[in-house]
């Protein structure tokens, strides 16, 4: 189908797909910004113990609710302290570990479930597809926050439980998108050619299908990672995520809520951190989508 009159192809010696992607990536401002912020947060999370002089758990009745430096506080607690006198910066830095870990692990679990279902449904069609579509429908019909809350309430709020629950709940978008993408790739003639050349089914899925739906998978992975991080924060905020005294950004906002009237910075700081992390992941995802736009077809 030609939508507009064909613009004659842009010609230079075409670089390989990977080189082209890299070139586009280096020109994509959103991707670079998202990647940079993400990298900073990642480094803070990894080196949290080295970057903070105080323990995130150490309480001090003498040093409660100290304001951050920019509100007239002291340099020893440059982001201030909370109602129990714990160093806010240290809790923030350690909280980044919780958020990132939950995001990564939950998204990995859902990616495994969702993309397996999606690819199989898209490749085989027919009954397999019907079954998977049904599962997706059931999953979508269940209210995520409510079910997660209920499960956490029943099993207790450990990191493992939260990760598992979110991982088991957030696979729907992987399945939906990869199903559609696989259906498209499956129709292409190189898949038929591989079959005619005697390639086995796992080989076709691995060599011909997966690499060509990989960009979708990566994009959804970033989306769901952000989704999981926000959900964990929301659960913790409601008091049913990871439990105190674990430093979690959602929990910090929840604890700061009590002081909303007098010390709004208590919720502003973890809120901004959360916002920046999710923003950077989303921008990274959007950037990857733009950069891996299907090449090959002019």
């Amino acid at each position: 189908m030609t939508h507009t009159p064909p613009v004659p192809p842009v010609r230079e010696v075409q670089p390989s797909p990977r080189q082209m992607m890299l070139r586009r990536a280096l020109r994509h401002r959103g991707l670079l910004f998202g990647g940079a912020v993400m990298l900073v947060i990642l480094l803070i999370a990894i080196f949290a113990p080295l970057l903070s002089q105080h323990s995130p758990y150490a309480q001090s009745l003498m040093a409660r609710m100290k304001p951050p430096v920019f509100l007239g506080g002291e340099a020893t607690h440059w982001l201030g302290t909370d109602a129990l006198g714990r160093d806010y910066w240290s809790r923030l830095a350690h909280g980044a570990r919780v958020s990132l870990m939950i995001g990564l692990f939950a998204a990995t679990i859902s990616a495994l479930i969702g993309s397996t279902l999606g690819i199989l449904a898209g490749y085989f069609g027919g009954r397999v597809d019907m079954a998977v579509t049904f599962l997706i429908n059931v999953r979508l019909a269940m209210p995520v926050v409510l079910v997660a809350l209920a499960v956490v309430a029943l099993f207790g709020g450990s990191l493992t439980v939260v990760v598992t629950v979110l991982g088991l709940l957030l696979w729907d978008r992987f399945a939906v998108v990869l199903r559609a993408a696989t259906m498209q790739v499956r129709k292409l003639e190189y898949v038929a050619a591989a079959e005619v050349l005697g390639a086995s089914l796992p080989r076709i899925l691995w060599k011909d299908i997966l690499p060509n739906v990989m960009n979708h998978l990566i994009v959804i992975f970033t989306l769901e990672m952000a989704h999981a991080i926000i959900l964990e924060a929301a659960l913790s905020f409601l008091g049913l995520g990871v439990q105190p005294p674990t430093p979690s950004w959602g929990l910090m906002i929840s604890e700061g809520k009590e002081m909303l009237l007098f010390e709004p910075w208590l919720i502003t700081i973890p809120g901004v951190a959360l916002f920046l992390l999710v923003l950077s992941i989303n921008m990274l995802g959007d950037g990857i989508r733009d950069v891996t736009a299907p090449e090959g077809r002019n």
Partner: peptide, 10 residues
């Protein structure tokens, strides 16, 4: 992009 990154409870 910004809207998607703001946690609703916050």
């Amino acid at each position: 992009v910004v809207g998607q990154a703001i946690p609703s409870f916050w």
